[in-house]
């Protein structure tokens, strides 16, 4: 579904990711791990079309998407749950979902709105509340729900658990895993919480300073936690 072939990503003049090889298949959850500054967010934003790829190719369902703008990628079926959630704070929960479904017809958007809020009953209760006044966990649910509006086939999720209570993190991952299993959604997930992600992901890629330093299945990673810990140990805290 998603294939990155020798991809290098630049921030300004600087190459922050080099020669990344990565695939995500339908129904699969792939974790992208690594210390702060490793280039995880840059990778996610490059796939979503917000940061330029300077070398290599990104393919989605067999076709190269390198020249497509972010909304064109959304239309193709890429959903983004960005770092810091980036919900629209002055809009209500419902209005955030309206923007999420902006590419859909009005009727289709209304139908999707009911479907995605059914995944997160908390959002249903807070439909008319200003998103900026939601708790961190609710904002994260909203960010996921907003990305799901267009029925993406690939979801890019950056730092889902940051600053959230474990129960909320569990709930969000439960929803994502269910969508992977039941609807064949592909997920590429950046996560600092290694413990959690290794129990839900299928495969793992570890970046450090823009280079791929380890790739394997989550099972292998769990068996060799010392390895992963050593790599993430570069990170403070």
């Amino acid at each position: 579904m998603l294939e990155l072939a020798r991809v290098s990503v630049a921030r300004g003049e600087l190459r922050v990711v080099r020669d990344l090889e990565l695939t995500v298949s339908a129904g699969e959850m792939v974790a992208l791990l690594g210390p702060n500054g490793a280039g995880k967010t840059s990778t996610i934003m490059a796939i979503a079309g917000h940061v330029p790829v300077v070398e290599g190719t990104i393919r989605f369902e067999g076709r190269s998407i390198d020249t497509l703008s972010p909304p064109e990628r959304t239309r193709l079926g890429l959903g983004l749950v960005p770092e810091g959630r980036r919900i629209f704070p002055d809009l209500t929960v419902r209005e955030n979902l309206v923007v999420g479904g902006y590419l859909l017809s009005r009727g289709e958007a209304q139908k999707r709105e009911r479907e995605v809020t059914a995944l997160f009953p908390r959002l249903e209760e807070r439909r008319q509340q200003r998103a900026g006044t939601l708790s961190g966990g609710e904002q994260q649910m909203l960010s996921i729900a907003r990305a799901l509006m267009v029925r993406p086939r690939l979801l890019l999720v950056d730092e889902l658990s940051l600053g959230l209570m474990p129960a909320v993190v569990d709930l969000c991952f439960e929803v994502l895993v269910r969508l992977c299993r039941e609807q064949g959604l592909a997920c590429l997930v950046v996560e600092q919480n290694t413990q959690k992600i290794l129990t839900v992901a299928d495969r793992v890629t570890v970046l450090s300073a823009g280079r791929t330093v380890w790739q394997g299945t989550a099972e292998e990673a769990r068996a060799d936690e010392a390895l992963i810990d050593r790599m993430l140990g570069l990170e403070a805290g």
Partner: peptide, 25 residues
């Protein structure tokens, strides 16, 4: 601003133009 999709899109653009754009606004 509150009753139409275009108005909601406008307010979303004020909040976060990059995100609003990625959803097709």
């Amino acid at each position: 601003a509150v009753g139409s999709r275009a108005g909601v899109a406008w307010r979303a653009t004020v909040d976060d133009p990059e995100m609003a754009m990625s959803f097709g606004v």
